[in-house]
Write a protein that binds this DNA or RNA. Structure first.
Lengths: 214, 214
DNA sequence: TTTATGCGGAGGAAAATCTTCCGGTTAGGG
DNA sequence: CCCTAACCGGAAGATTTTCCTCCGCATAAA
C-alpha cells in the first residue's frame, strides 16, 4: 500500500495506525490524537503530516480491519477442507479481531464523509463471497443449521460481551464463541424468529458506497 | 428511593436519569451534561443541583440498571415454573437491557470513586442468588449444559453485536440471543474450553466493594 | 557528502465543557 | 386562596481539552 515513503516514514505510519486501532478500541474514536501519537511513540507533527485529519486516520484503521477480515475469511475458506470447521475458524478469528467496537463509530464516516476508492468495496465483496461459500457448503453438509443467512454470520462476527478487568478476557470470550458455534449447529435447536438475514439486510453494514461527489 | 423532594423535582430527577441512561448508551458516558439536560427537557442548572458531578449521575444510572436487572432475575425465577424457560426469559430480558455498553465505562467509577451504600451490594446478591438457582435447577432438569457456571451467564447478559443503522436491530438481536440459548442447551455440543466461570471469576464484575475511606 | 524528506514537540488558537448565579415560577400546606 | 420555601431555566464567565501549525534539527538514500 502507501508507497514512495522513506523507510522511517513508512514504519511510523504503521505504528500510528496500530496505535490508533488499539486506542479506538479501548477508548472510542474520540481519543485525542495526541494520545495516539504518544502511544505510537511519535510526535503529533508526524501524525498530522501523515493524516491531515481524524477522518483520514479513521479510514486507515477501517481499511486495515477490513483487510484483515477479508484475509481471514479467504484463508479459512481455502485452508480448511471441512466447511463447518472453516466457519468455526472464521468466526473465532473475527471475534478476536474485536470488530464490534469499531463500526458503530466508523459508520457515519464510511457513509458520509469518506471518499473511498474501490478497494474497500472489493474487500467487502471478498468477505461476502467467502462467507457465502462456507455457509452453503456447511449447510449442504448438514453441519450448519439452515435458518441462518450470511447476514447472521456478519452480525456474529461483531460478537462482544463485557469482560471485567482482571478476568482473562480472551478465555472468557473463547467460551462465549464456542457457545455460539454450538448454537449454530444443524442439530442445535428450535427455529429462529424471523427469517435468515441475507446480504441485503446488511446493505448498510460497513457499506461502501461512493458518496456523491460534492 | 430519593425522598423528600417536591413532586416536580422528583419528576425531573427521574427524567434526567432516564435521559442520561439513553445517552450513555448511545454516545458513551462522556456526553456533555448539557445534552443530558436538553434531552431530559430541563435546564442545566436543574441537573447540577440534583447531581453535583458526573459521578453522581453515573452512579444513579448504574443503580437503576442494576435494580432493573435484579427485578428481572427474580421475576423470571419466580414466575416461570420451568427453570430452563426462566433462564431464557432472563437472558432475553437482560440482553434487551443492553447492559453491555455501560459497565466498561462504569467500572472505574464503581471501583474507585463510588462511595456506595450497601444497596448495590444487596442487589448484586439478589441477581446472583436468582441466577444460581435457575442454573442449578435447569441443570438438574437436564435442560442446561453442565459446563456452564454463573459467571458464564453473567457474561452473556452483556451480549452485544453491532447492528448497523437501518436494520431492525431488535429483531437481529433476538435471533442472536436465540442462537446463544440453543448453544446453552444440554444437548448442544462439545465441551467448552476452560472451566465453568463461577461468581468468583466475576469478583470484579460490577463489584461493589466499599472503597477505603480516603 | 549532500539534500530532500522526515521528525518532534512547544505553544497559540479554537472549541467544548463545566459550573455558578439569580430573577422568575410553582407546589402544596395552612 | 395565598404565601413561602423549594425549585426552575439558562446566560455567561471560567476552565479544561483538543487541535494543528511551524520551524530548527535529524536522517535515509544516492
Amino acid at each position: 500500500m502507501e508507497k514512495g515513503l522513506r523507510a522511517d516514514a513508512r514504519r511510523n505510519r504503521d505504528l500510528i495506525v496500530a496505535a490508533a486501532r488499539e486506542l479506538f478500541l479501548e477508548q472510542g474514536v474520540d481519543v485525542p490524537l495526541e494520545e495516539v501519537a504518544r502511544r505510537a511513540g511519535v510526535g503529533v507533527g508526524t501524525l498530522y503530516r501523515r493524516f491531515p485529519d481524524r477522518d483520514a486516520l479513521l479510514r486507515a484503521v477501517g481499511e486495515e480491519s477490513l483487510r484483515r477480515l477479508a484475509d481471514l475469511a479467504e484463508t479459512a475458506c481455502r485452508d480448511e477442507p471441512d466447511a463447518w470447521h472453516a466457519l468455526c475458524r472464521f468466526l473465532r478469528g473475527s471475534v478476536a479481531l474485536r470488530l464490534g467496537v469499531l463500526p458503530a463509530k466508523l459508520e457515519p464516516h464510511l457513509h458520509q464523509r469518506m471518499r473511498v476508492g474501490p478497494d474497500l468495496h472489493e474487500m467487502r465483496q471478498r468477505v461476502i463471497a467467502a462467507v457465502l461459500r462456507m455457509i452453503e457448503r456447511a449447510q449442504a453438509d448438514g453441519a450448519l443449521r439452515t435458518d441462518i443467512g450470511p447476514g447472521d454470520v456478519a452480525l456474529l462476527m461483531t460478537l462482544n460481551v463485557y469482560t471485567p478487568p482482571g478476568m482473562h478476557s480472551e478465555q472468557a470470550m473463547g467460551r462465549v464463541v464456542e457457545i455460539v458455534l454450538d448454537g449454530l449447529r444443524a442439530d442445535a435447536g428450535s427455529p429462529l424468529p424471523g427469517t435468515p438475514l441475507d446480504e441485503d439486510d446488511l446493505r448498510h453494514y460497513t457499506a461502501v458506497r461512493l458518496p456523491p461527489a460534492e
